[in-house]
């Protein structure tokens, strides 16, 4: 997992598997980030090969923390075969789904300008 700070968002790059055994590390890092600032969060899943409900739970927790503050949880780079679970769970309506990090960061900037 790699964490990158931008002025408008914190990006978490996740590679490999996001399941019951790997989520505690990400959860800790995301929660630390949420304690420290109220920036948008971008999950870069372009190198993600597998995610289950434990991984999705972290996205939901982030959303529950940020949404009341008017911030966004953005998900980008999801592979086609994984995108299906965002559709069937309805999470694609909750998180902003972006093609890549550049598009997600641009969207953050546009949203800030519109406020």
């Amino acid at each position: 997992m790699v964490k990158i700070e931008y002025p408008q968002a914190t990006v978490f790059q996740i590679s490999g598997r996001l399941d019951g055994s790997s989520t505690p590390q990400l959860e800790k890092s995301v929660m630390n980030s949420l304690e420290g600032n109220n920036k948008n969060i971008i999950f870069d899943f372009s190198e993600l090969q597998y995610i289950n409900s434990a991984g999705l739970r972290i996205l939901v927790m982030s959303y529950q923390r940020l949404q009341p503050l008017g911030r966004q949880v953005m998900v980008c780079g999801v592979r086609d075969y994984i995108s299906e679970i965002f559709d069937i769970s309805g999470y694609n309506r909750v998180f902003l789904m972006c093609r890549d990090v550049s598009q997600a960061l641009h969207t953050c900037t546009v949203m800030k300008d519109e406020l």
């Binding site: 999801v78 086609d80 075969y81 995108s83 299906e84 902003l96 789904m97 972006c98 093609r99 598009q103 969207t107």
Partner: peptide, 8 residues
């Protein structure tokens, strides 16, 4: 493998 995602 027909699924192609619609992005923002």
């Amino acid at each position: 493998e027909e699924n192609t995602y619609t992005w923002l």
